[in-house]
């Protein structure tokens, strides 16, 4: 019986991620609009967009191949599985041992790989520009993220996320320089990976500055809906990750009962709201940088991550 309940919680978590993802995107947009003294759309607007796109027919370019039609489902599946592996309101779920943090990073890599291929599939110059820049950004962001993983797992003695979160709640963590560096690196990577300002602008269609939008330019209808939902899931994943590692308070442990879960959900929602607010604040207060500054931005993230890990490697015996 308890086992079934555990699986139920796991299923709830997966569904919760899916349902919350568009809301978070809408939430960030509302905040950005308010900070710019605009009224802005309702936070529910992303849901309406998704439903509209889902009902529309797909227009495929003449030169599109089977990969172009399969890629949205693959990308969505990889991102959803990756998102479902991040503890949100409860840790230690039955499938949390399926993949650790390194595998989550690699699953994001799988999604990116197929998105970049889809950008090249139709054979237009915009798709190519988006794919090639995305892979350049990823070639620095992914190592930076892995360095952050190194730092965490050296501290917690594991790369499994639930255990990391549990470790971060214990008193032995304290304030550490390495953790601060890792936090900074993760925030920088999250901004780059989610195509936010200053690396990319999710609201733009100015051709020469866009990365993510250029790759998905040829997509329409249900395929576009899946890719948009995937992008929302990715944003949710990163904010959940930041929450579960650096602010694990209130998270329930599986099997604790309904009250603990409810507290967990409440805490999780509060974290998301706060994270979305910070993101909107950051985005409105900074200008977008040109593409060949991104490598310096992410190179700094990589160095911060490496420095954090190096400090731990060296200070282990002290």
């Amino acid at each position: 019986m308890a086992l079934i309940a555990d699986y139920l919680v796991q299923g709830c978590q997966m569904l919760l991620m899916l349902l919350l993802a568009p809301l978070l995107t809408g939430w960030v947009r509302v905040f950005k609009a308010r900070l710019l003294r605009r009224r802005g759309p309702s936070p529910l607007q992303p849901y309406r967009d998704l439903f509209k796109l889902l009902r529309k027919e797909v227009v495929l370019a003449d030169s599109a191949s089977w990969l172009f039609r399969v890629a949205p489902y693959l990308i969505f599946a990889a991102l959803w599985v990756a998102a479902a592996l991040v503890p949100t309101f409860a840790g230690g779920l039955p499938f949390s041992w399926t993949a650790d943090l390194i595998a989550i990073v690699a699953l994001l890599g799988t999604a990116r790989f197929f998105l970049a291929l889809a950008g090249l599939d139709v054979g237009t110059s915009f798709g190519g520009i988006g794919s090639s820049r995305e892979m350049m950004i990823a070639s620095l962001a992914e190592p930076a993220m892995l360095m952050m993983v190194f730092t965490l797992s050296l501290l917690a003695g594991t790369t499994e996320l639930s255990s990391v979160a549990r470790f971060m709640l214990t008193a032995e963590v304290g304030l550490r320089v390495s953790l601060g560096l890792a936090l900074l690196a993760l925030v920088m990577v999250a901004i780059a990976e989610n195509a936010r300002i200053p690396v990319d602008n999710p609201a733009t269609h100015l051709e020469l500055t866009m990365v993510h939008e250029a790759m998905v330019l040829e997509y329409s209808g249900r395929h576009l809906a899946l890719i948009e939902l995937g992008a929302s899931l990715k944003l949710l994943l990163y904010i959940s990750l930041l929450g579960c590692i650096f602010a694990p308070w209130g998270m329930a442990v599986v099997g604790e009962g309904l009250t603990a879960y409810l507290i967990g959900v409440g805490a999780y929602l509060a974290k998301l709201a706060f994270g979305g607010f910070l993101l909107a604040l950051f985005e409105t207060s900074i200008a977008k940088m040109r593409v060949f500054r991104v490598d310096q931005f992410l190179g700094a993230a990589l160095m911060l991550g490496l420095l954090g890990a190096l400090l731990l490697f060296v200070s282990r015996s002290l």
């Binding site: 027919e57 227009v59 495929l60 139709v122 110059s125 798709g127 520009i129 330019l217 040829e218 249900r222």
Partner: peptide, 23 residues
């Protein structure tokens, strides 16, 4: 929906027939 239709590439409104415009 499962409807799909083939058409020329969108390419921001300026599709170019020559394959040399690809990356």
């Amino acid at each position: 929906s499962n409807a799909a239709r083939r058409g020329p590439a969108w390419d921001c409104g300026f599709p170019e027939a020559s394959p040399a415009t690809q990356y």
